[in-house]
């Protein structure tokens, strides 16, 4: 069995991966601003400064409000210790927190939903939240529930919840920016001059326009790719915490056997769940937040 790294070590290692992701997303953002300034013929430097200021404010606001927004969208409520099922869930979370060396113990929430699912969120591992659906509490055995909690605890340990919170905010920012520019162009806004441009410049403009249109999609694809990789990682390191890969594998099997009911909740946070609550991919796709579930089960059982 591979060795579970001490939390502090895990956090340090994942920081570099996080930095790479954000450099990439920031490059896309920078490219977008560059394209916009070229297209609208605004000088680059003021455009960059303006984008930086707006971006920073946007990030601060959205990262501060994202956790309550996610909980509200999922209609999650704090677990009730008077109900035995939920008390046992709180125990399972506490046990996994001990196994993963996470203090304080994450807060436990419950989402009223027939689906078997769970997610972790929070701005960092000190303010983490684990949320499990009532469907999962009903259908999963203790061993399976522990496997699921181990997976979510790994998302917390791996800093995935933080990455996701900020990545969602950044992707939202890119989408917002692109939409504003595209709309203002449609309705004749902006300072686009109609004078003839040089041939080379015209080509550049087309590339810039293409980039404005594509930037939201590209940033999402980058994010999805990272998300899929992190799901495998959370599966593996979750099994390290429980020392029992079969628990999670059999929970995933139960999920695979059910179809998601039309789901409440915010689509942007689908990547936070144990498995995508909106769409159950059985084939690998660049647009999925999660790897194919059968593949995850096979890997957990050492058959991939």
């Amino acid at each position: 069995m591979a060795l579970a790294l001490p939390l502090a070590e895990q956090v340090r290692r994942n920081k570099s991966a996080t930095v790479r992701l954000f450099v990439l997303v920031f490059l896309i953002l920078g490219g977008l601003v560059f394209s916009v300034s070229l297209y609208l013929q605004v000088p680059l430097v003021p455009a960059l400064v303006l984008a930086l200021v707006i971006g920073a404010i946007y990030l601060m606001i959205s990262s501060a409000s994202s956790v309550p927004a996610i909980l509200a969208a999922a209609r999650a409520r704090p677990a009730n210790p008077e109900v035995r099922e939920e008390k046992l869930l709180m125990y399972a979370v506490e046990e996994m927190a001990v196994a993963g060396g996470i203090t304080p113990v994450p807060k436990v929430y419950v989402q009223e939903d027939e689906d078997i699912n769970a997610f972790a969120t929070g701005r960092n591992y000190k303010e983490a939240i684990v949320c499990v659906t009532t469907g999962a509490l009903k259908s999963l055995s203790n061993e399976e529930l522990q496997g699921v909690i181990g997976h979510e605890m790994s998302h917390i340990r791996n800093q995935d919840i933080k990455v996701t919170t900020y990545a969602i905010a950044l992707i939202g920012l890119i989408a917002l920016l692109a939409e504003i520019v595209l709309r203002s162009m449609f309705f004749g806004g902006g300072r686009r001059s109609n004078s003839k441009e040089g041939g080379g410049n015209g080509l550049l403009l087309i590339i810039a326009l293409a980039f404005i249109i594509l930037a939201p999609i590209i940033s999402r694809l980058v994010y999805f790719a990272i998300s899929r990789k992190r799901e495998y990682l959370a599966d593996a390191s979750g099994a390290e915490l429980t020392r029992n890969p079969e628990g999670l594998a059999s929970a995933l099997e139960k999920i695979a056997a059910t179809q998601p009911t039309p789901n409440r909740g915010d689509r942007t946070v689908a990547a936070l769940y144990l498995d995508n609550p909106f769409r159950r991919g059985h084939r690998a796709s660049a647009f999925s937040t999660h790897p194919p579930i059968q593949d995850r089960i096979a890997r957990l059982r050492g058959k991939a």
Binding site: A4, Y91, E94, E95, M96, V98, A99, G101, L241
Partner: peptide
Amino acid sequence: ENKVAFARQA
């Protein structure tokens, strides 16, 4: 007891 076991593992 589970917590003792997991803490020992850690």
